[in-house]
Simulated scan of single mutants.
Amino acid sequence: MDWSAFFKDMELWMQASNEVLKKYPIDSDKYWEWMVHSTGKFGNKYNNHPLVIQFLMVLISFQEDVYKQLSQSKQMG
């Protein structure tokens, strides 16, 4: 497993995520469709190595937390 390549790709994925978020808000179906598709493709690239899957789950969990915070602030505001 080439971990250097993996972490470089993860950095590129995070940059891509930021670009997608400029077009589609985190509470949009378009963003989550991109998220699911891109993380699936990312996992496949690294043969769904268990540690790769764990890292991807952390990325998804983080985005879910951001989404939940946004939803809560919208409900309060």
Rank of each mutant, 00 (worst) to 15 (best):
Q69N: 14
Q75G: 12
G40W: 12
K68D: 11
D9K: 01
L12T: 10
W34R: 01
K23R: 12
M57F: 10
D2R: 00
N47G: 02
A16F: 00
V20K: 07
I53E: 08
W3K: 01
K23N: 09
L12K: 07
V20T: 02
N48W: 07
P50I: 02
M14V: 14
K74F: 07
N18D: 14
W3G: 11
H49G: 05
S71R: 10
W34Y: 15
W32R: 15
E64Q: 07
Q63G: 01
D65V: 08
M14I: 03
F42D: 04
Y67L: 15
L12F: 07
P50H: 01
F62Q: 14
D29K: 15
Q15L: 12
Y67Q: 01
K41S: 13
N18W: 02
E11N: 13
V58Q: 14
D9T: 04
F6W: 00
D27H: 02
G43E: 07
S61K: 14
L12G: 06
L21N: 01
M57R: 05
L12A: 14
K22H: 06
H49R: 00
G77D: 10
Y24D: 06
I53T: 03
M76N: 11
S28N: 06
I53C: 13
W13S: 09
L70E: 03
W3F: 01
N44V: 03
Y46F: 12
M76Q: 11
L21H: 00
L12Y: 00
L21P: 03
L56N: 05
E11K: 14
W32G: 08
L56Q: 11
A16L: 08
T39I: 11
F42K: 01
K22R: 06
A5P: 05
S61F: 03
V36H: 13
L56P: 00
M14R: 10
W13M: 12
F42Y: 09
L12Q: 08
V66S: 05
S71K: 14
W13R: 09
Q63E: 03
M57V: 08
S38R: 03
F55V: 04
K8P: 11
S38W: 09
G77C: 13
F6C: 00
N47W: 02
G40A: 09
P25R: 04
S71Q: 10
V52N: 01
L59I: 13
G40Q: 08
K68W: 07
Q63H: 15
A5L: 10
Q75S: 06
S17D: 14
D9M: 08
K74S: 13
Q69C: 10
Q69W: 07
Y24R: 04
L70N: 01
S17V: 00
K68P: 09
Y67P: 09
V66K: 01
L21G: 06
W13L: 15
V58F: 14
K8T: 12
L70V: 12
P50W: 04
E11T: 10
F7E: 10
H37G: 13
M10R: 03
M35C: 14
P50K: 04
S61V: 00
K8N: 03
I53A: 06
N48Y: 08
D65Q: 10
K8I: 13
E33L: 13
A16H: 11
S28Y: 10
E33C: 06
V52G: 06
L12H: 06
L70R: 09
H49Y: 04
V58K: 13
S28D: 15
N48L: 03
